[in-house]
């Protein structure tokens, strides 16, 4: 998509097998929501912020400042305003207690939401629709066909709209000149022609597909993805890291309480290891991309 910025196409992590991309995003989006642990949230947010800036450049910075930041402020203010649980009452606003715990929760929730949205920014740059169709096409063949056809139809309709408009200009019904009413009428006619054409075209396309054997048994789907040794090694590494984090969560070493009193378990070796694994996971794609940039730079320098 055009939304993908300067470096999205060169991201080395995006070049790994779609399964790895999906496992990664599944982990980083769900982990902060599940384990509202302050350190986990902060790491996740920092990693998402830096990778989204790496992928989208200055355009990404604008989005982060104009959209993500205000949303985080709303979340940070919303919780103390409506949640009056918590033991440490700081002050009262119109008989409603404002507690330290709900302020802390609000800040953590804000960091969590900001992180999740920034991970989705990265997701949009990396997980293109063809990867999604490749991953889920076998399970939902009918719907993934609709998905990929609809994505193809959008630019097709744009081209056809230009054709219809120029044909109508040729017979004196220009949608971009004349009085306001005439322009609206001519523009409406273009849309009308376009919709009729789109529906007829859909039938023709499906007849053509059927006559070429769509839906017959034994047909395969075209794919450009290969699961090779490099993917296997990275997938094993990622799953091992995820397993450590899940183990730490399951044994309760990272349990965080926000109400009635904010408390994090005392630091234990397992929690430390789990946080290290979380850091490694979150920064994995950025590290791979940066390493590739450095390797390429050295290679270019050596050649000259």
């Amino acid at each position: 998509m055009g939304a993908a910025g300067a470096k999205a196409n060169r991201s080395i992590f995006a070049g790994y097998h779609p399964v790895l991309n999906f496992v990664f995003f599944g982990y980083v989006v769900l982990a902060p929501i599940f384990f509202m642990h302050p350190v986990v949230l902060a790491v996740s947010f920092a990693a998402a912020m830096s990778w989204s800036l790496y992928l989208n450049g200055r355009k990404g910075l604008k989005f982060n400042l104009c959209f993500v930041l205000p949303l985080m402020c709303v979340a940070a203010l919303f919780n103390p305003a409506f949640n009056h649980e918590g033991a440490t009452i700081l002050f009262y606003i119109r008989d409603n207690p404002i507690t330290l715990e709900s302020i802390v929760y609000g800040v953590c929730a804000a960091v969590m939401i900001g992180g999740v949205i920034l991970w989705f920014v990265c997701y949009n740059a990396v997980m293109t629709s063809d990867k999604f169709v490749y991953l889920f096409g076998r399970g939902i063949p009918a719907m993934s066909l609709i998905l990929s056809m609809a994505l193809r139809f959008i630019p097709l309709y744009r081209t056809q709209a230009v054709r219809v408009a120029s044909a109508r200009r040729g017979i004196g019904f220009d949608a971009f000149s004349g009085g306001f009413l005439a322009r609206v009428r001519n523009g409406g006619a273009i849309l009308s022609v376009l919709v009729t054409w789109a529906l007829e075209n859909a039938i023709e396309t499906s007849d053509s597909m059927r006559s070429r054997g769509y839906g017959l048994p034994g047909r395969t789907a075209y794919s450009i993805y290969r699961f090779d040794a490099r993917d296997r090694a990275l997938l094993v590494l990622m799953l091992a890291l995820v397993a450590v984090v899940v183990l730490a969560i399951a044994t309760g070493t990272m349990k965080t309480l926000y109400f009635p009193l904010f408390s994090v378990r005392d630091a234990q070796p397992l929690a430390g290891i789990a946080i290290a694994c979380h850091v490694a996971l979150c920064f994995l794609p950025l590290a791979l991309d940066t390493r590739e940039d450095i390797v390429q730079k050295i290679a270019l320098d050596n050649r000259s």
Binding site: I146, A150, F153, I154, L199, A202, S206
Partner: peptide
């Protein structure tokens, strides 16, 4: 579903997205 139904649905989805 029939191929025709699928493609008509896809066309409507594309029109809506556009």
């Amino acid at each position: 579903p029939q191929t025709r139904e699928l493609v008509v649905i896809a066309a409507l989805v594309a029109i809506t997205v556009a």
